[in-house]
Computed example of a mutant assay.
Amino acid sequence: MGVSMATARRWVERWERQQERYALDREERFTVIADVVEHATAGHSGRPLLLDLGCGPGSLAARLAARFPDAEIVAVDTDPVLLELGRTHHPYAARYVDTEIGAGDWDRALGLDRPLDAAVSTTALHYLSRPALLRTYRRLAALLRPGGVLVNGDHFPPAGPACAALTAHVGRRRAERSRTGGAEDWESWWSAAARDPELTDLFTERARRPPAPAARDTPRTVAHHTELLRAAGFREVTPVWQFGDSHVLAAVA
């Protein structure tokens, strides 16, 4: 089910542009996440071990590999299309693992031989229900070394409807000023990729897999996630960056 480098490059580059439609400050958010990892790993001997949760086609893993060339990065996702694109386009950035975050003993597939220095994620954990997210946070707290960090970049709207509307408006207006509204959207990217003959086998495998159950009671706000992170055993939790409802939230084990 392998794909050529040219095909992988084309679809990953289109993925990058498509994602910018939904996260205008995506590059800055990636940079802030790397800044937190840099701080957490400074002064620690040995090769840093990083886990990328919901890695997609390796966007964040590739940036972390460029910033931390000595790090070992394990990148996790359950989508065979995105994983193969990442393995092909960013083959040296990470060791890619096919496992469903939060499902059963998902972490056994990681093959870790020592505690994590950092776990990172962008726009990948928001689909988990409150119980599943709490289980995932607890497992990550156990996998991280003392002083290690979990860094999550995502959209966290405020609890109040007035403030939620305000932060959404700020983000929307900035996107309009940056003229990103015409970028390819999520649905059109997937529809176009499914028509590529080189990806047919991967889409067949994708169709075989049961869809993720629709999660209810998904934690949305920074306060909700902070509550769950503390309940999971993280010592300290703080936002380190925000624009509109886009945040980077850091938790110290």
Rank of each mutant, 00 (worst) to 15 (best):
G43E: 05
L112S: 09
S129D: 15
R95V: 14
M5C: 06
R177D: 12
R114K: 12
A34L: 05
A142V: 14
T136N: 02
L150K: 00
L228V: 09
R26Q: 13
A61Q: 08
P158L: 13
R67P: 02
T99D: 05
T78D: 14
H89R: 12
F203W: 15
T99M: 08
D52W: 00
Y96H: 06
T226C: 03
L64Y: 02
C55M: 07
G181V: 00
A168I: 00
A94R: 04
Q19E: 13
Q19S: 10
M5N: 07
L49T: 08
A162D: 12
V12L: 10
R174K: 11
P158G: 13
A94C: 11
V222H: 10
I101M: 04
T226A: 11
H224A: 15
V81G: 04
G54E: 11
E198Y: 10
F234G: 06
R216C: 00
A66G: 09
W11H: 09
E27Q: 10
H225S: 08
V120Q: 06
R179F: 07
F156G: 04
A75W: 01
G160R: 11
A214H: 02
S246H: 12
Y137D: 01
H225F: 08
A42P: 01
H225R: 07
G111W: 04
H155L: 12
G147T: 02
C55R: 03
L82C: 05
D245P: 10
V12T: 13
V237M: 09
R14Y: 02
C55T: 15
G182E: 15
E20L: 15
G58D: 13
A8D: 04
A40S: 12
A212Q: 10
S188Y: 03
T221Y: 11
V81D: 03
R177N: 10
A183R: 14
Y92M: 09
T122Y: 02
G244R: 08
W106C: 07
R139A: 02
L166D: 02
L24G: 07
M1P: 10
D35F: 03
R67M: 04
D113C: 06
W15I: 00
V36P: 02
A8I: 06
L110W: 01
R10L: 13
V97P: 01
A193G: 01
G233C: 07
S45M: 01
V252R: 14
S246Q: 11
G233P: 05
G182K: 11
R139V: 02
V74C: 03
L229D: 01
V12E: 08
A94H: 09
A142L: 15
H89F: 15
D113T: 14
P69S: 09
G56T: 05
T7M: 12
H44F: 03
V240R: 14
L249E: 04
T7R: 12
G182Q: 14
V32W: 09
